[in-house]
Design a protein around this nucleic acid. Structure first.
Lengths: 252, 252
DNA sequence: ACACGCATATTGTCATATGATATGATTTTT
DNA sequence: AAAAATCATATCATATGACAATATGCGTGT
């Protein structure tokens, strides 16, 4: 599978080094349940042999996965796959690996719920804290989303940029950390169906985003919150429709 | 500084292995700005010498930090400290390291904002999805918070357990991932001032939490959301008061 | 001035050996 | 016979030394 720019942007995985390759394969295997939760995975030596890398590289890969909360090593016992609720779901690698198994409607719904909790709040904070420069920047991004020449991919990128700008303008560093989540949601939605399919869709999306900036510019917290809620609701609705049309999972 | 049970529970740091010690020291050094953002840190060999560990251990520690987004290694260039907005702030280690520098009011405020965005939503979801067993469990935890024998520390633990239970009952795995954030907030508040100081405070806290469970039990989404908002607001207010009383930062 | 290539420094990878630790079987003690 | 202590063993943890890959920047030649 060839990687497009968006996917490269989103995964950001350096596939050059053998370290990151091992991390990638192992991570996906764990997320997919190939190594089920609670089980002990094979010992260092066997895995090193299986991946055709040295034990050093294998162990560094394990440390990477352990840092993300996927596994816990214990001497003499082995390395155990931890319970799902200990995984750091806000880690962008973990999110990416989730989508490599295929798009799961439940998962997208959960992400939408989180966005619904987060982003309206971020918009409200932006209405308080955004500088004039940030506001005009956001406005430019929102307007740029209306370019009828957008491909589905370029639109997804523009969409992402806008939401990250809002998070930035909220002046709360945690909001910005949710960026990886937004990316995951957008790439998920993008793969299912894009509003760039028809010109009307593009105009709609752009208009809705511009409204957010307008409310922020008016320093209207409640208005900004409401405008952001609309945008997320629309995205979620598009997921629902797409899943109903094509209920079979789409390969990642 | 001797570690109490709460701190041990929260940090969860295994200080036994030299690997985790290096991770800990290096992580704190980066967070505190001892190695400023954008700078290159010393090479493998020098750091290995400085920490008196082998290059193997040092490199595994680096991979751990890299997995959390703190650093990015590049061949021939060195290992660079990444921009703050690339750090995964939802990682419990990173949160812990933040507090080791001393309690920063801004930081606690930001966390409160995130909780305000998240937990009311989680409570609303719990009102939809919680099983009867989960509801009675939450109720037991809320009632247990009213025990007048609570020390500040045991109260903080009980508080934490309750909020995690709500997150669990929301049936959204992302909500549960915010647990580390809640922990950080509670330990921060706990260090500043505890409602366990007076019996009236304990009763208040317990009553407010019981109200959340009541709303969830009635399947009242809006009510659950509102009740949770009250609890978080109270916690935030306590931080504000404590900071005003003792504006100097408290050593972590 | 420009392009090319090489020296160099740093991370990346490898192979092997030894230490630490927890499990389960075995032996000793009561 | 039961309980406690001991030992063998498997696994992760750490150490060491070497080589490979890579990117920078200088220097050389055109």
């Amino acid at each position: 599978m060839k990687k497009g720019p968006l996917e490269t942007l989103i995964t950001g995985v350096d596939t050059r080094t053998s370290h990151s390759q091992v991390v990638d394969v192992l991570g996906r295997a764990i997320i997919s349940g190939e190594f089920p939760v609670g089980t002990i995975l094979p010992g260092d030596q066997e895995l090193a042999m299986r991946f055709k890398v040295s034990r050093t590289v294998l162990r560094e890969a394990m440390k990477t996965l352990a840092a993300k909360g996927l596994i816990v090593p214990r001497a003499r016992i082995g390395t155990r796959v931890t319970a799902r609720n200990q995984w750091n779901l806000f880690d962008s690698d973990i999110l990416t690996w989730h989508f490599h198994n295929g798009i799961d409607e439940d998962f997208l719904t959960h992400i939408s719920e989180v966005r619904m909790a987060f982003e309206p709040h971020a918009a409200a904070l932006a209405a308080i804290h955004a500088t004039e420069a940030e506001i005009s920047h956001m406005m430019r991004l929102a307007v740029a989303m209306g370019d009828p020449a957008h491909t589905p991919e370029s639109l997804a990128v523009a969409d992402l940029r806008f939401h990250l700008a809002v998070a930035e303008a909220s002046a709360n560093p945690f909001m910005r950390s949710v960026g990886s989540l937004i990316e995951a949601a957008l790439v998920g939605i993008f793969k299912l169906s894009s509003p760039a399919a028809d010109r009307e869709g593009i105009e709609d999306v752009s208009r809705n985003h511009i409204r957010i900036v307008e409310q922020i510019s008016r320093r209207d917290e409640a208005g900004a919150r409401a405008a952001m809620e609309v945008v997320i609701r629309v995205g979620r609705a598009r997921v629902r429709v797409a899943m109903d049309d094509a209920p079979e999972t789409v390969a990642g």
